[in-house]
Amino acid sequence: MISAYYFGAISLILIGLYAILVKKNVLKMLIGLSIMETGVNLLLVSVGYISGRSAPILSEGIGPNQAVDPIPQALVLTAIVIGVATTAMALSVAMIIYEKYGTLNVEEIRRLRG
């Protein structure tokens, strides 16, 4: 059995991927991308967790042997803000698509069809 945190992270990743594969509206696909990103962040943080230990801030009562793995948290800390910036960039591409074609449906945007 896998842990509840892994299960939740995998579910978020799959929900996001479903939205990207099935939805036709560009905005909904971007929402799916954001959900997927959240799932990946949750997965990274939960891989770094160690049972019964506290946050890696070595103040009163927390020694080096009572703290969880700091490296995944450091990774996720920056990944969240970078994710916001890249989502903003994707959204501005969507804005331009809407200006140009008057629709956000990927099937009606002529030049995006395979």
């Binding site: 896998i2 995998i10 967790y49 160690i50 019964g52």
Partner: peptide, 22 residues
């Protein structure tokens, strides 16, 4: 994904370089 993560038990101490940092 679940198969891959089954080999990574939840809540276990796997720190190598992180222990040095701590």
């Amino acid at each position: 994904l679940a198969q891959g993560l089954a080999g990574v038990p939840f809540g276990e101490d796997r720190m190598l370089v992180a222990q040095y940092y701590l």
